[in-house]
Computed example of a mutant assay.
Amino acid sequence: MILGFDTSGPWLGTALYSDGDIRASHYVNMAKGQAEHLMPLIERTLADADASLADLTAIGVGIGPGNFTGIRISVSAARGLSLALGVPAIGVSGLEALAFDAPQPTLTVLAAPRDQLYVQRHGDGVAKGPALIARDDLPLWTVPGITLIGQDSPVLEEEFGIPHAPAAYAPAAAIARIAATRIGTEQPRPTPLYLKPADAAPSRETGPRLL
């Protein structure tokens, strides 16, 4: 069984994948409070499938791009569970998750602050990204026959004339399915995918001297 979860945006998603299908899943719109609700929702998802943490063989986790705090919550939880359970943790980007089982070429998109977008282009011979771009530069990422998938894609289709389609799966479900395809291959430890600098300015105060 593979547990997938994601808190990289204003949501909290979990999914349990086994034997080629999703056994249980939950998706909650949640801009704040993910740290407090992640483990209870994981436990609820497992209970729905009459499973426990001991049944897990791998963990798939969303690594962003997206909200700094949200990404850290999921990645930290995945690393902790991986260590405690002795199972691999596999990081999957949200842009990859959107493209899973989608027609290609595909342009996946996630909302970013300050009228920007996180984008990635998928397809043989046209793959590009991931990157952070200005919203108005989205047409520069198109190629003939491309489909737009992701946040606000209907609005973006109306604005730029790029055909859109819904994602095949909710984020956590796609992450769990992708993780299943990577089991048995060497995978780096999940690391946050940050495509923009932190909003907070570095402190001007000198920290305490370490002895």
Rank of each mutant, 00 (worst) to 15 (best):
V28S: 13
G60D: 06
P208F: 11
T69L: 06
L107G: 00
M39P: 05
A179C: 07
P171Y: 10
W141C: 07
A49Y: 07
V143T: 13
I42T: 05
R189S: 15
A31G: 15
I2N: 03
P105A: 11
G60A: 07
P144K: 10
A31P: 11
I22C: 06
M1R: 08
G62I: 00
R209V: 15
A24Y: 08
L85G: 02
D124E: 15
P105Q: 12
H26Y: 13
P154T: 10
V61Q: 09
G70Y: 02
A78R: 04
T57K: 14
E96T: 13
P154G: 09
T191M: 11
D48S: 10
G150E: 10
D50Y: 00
E205P: 02
G70N: 05
P144I: 09
H37D: 12
V75Y: 03
E158S: 09
L195Y: 06
R121Y: 10
A51K: 12
A127C: 06
L56Y: 06
R121H: 09
Q187E: 13
V143C: 07
V126F: 05
R44Q: 15
V109G: 08
R79F: 11
S25H: 04
E96M: 10
H37N: 11
T69F: 04
P192L: 09
Q104E: 15
A179W: 01
T57I: 13
I42R: 04
A78M: 00
T147C: 13
D137H: 08
R72M: 07
A49L: 02
L107K: 04
A174F: 12
I73T: 10
G80A: 12
L193I: 10
L211D: 14
A77P: 02
G60I: 07
E158R: 11
P154W: 06
A51Y: 07
H122I: 09
P163K: 01
P113H: 08
Q116C: 11
V28Q: 14
A168V: 03
R204C: 12
T185K: 15
R72W: 09
G150N: 09
G184L: 03
A49W: 02
Y118L: 01
V87I: 13
L12A: 01
Q34H: 10
L46D: 07
E158P: 00
L41E: 10
V92S: 07
A51I: 08
A174G: 04
Y169Q: 03
V61S: 01
L110P: 00
Y169C: 01
P197F: 08
A54N: 12
S153N: 03
A77K: 05
L107D: 04
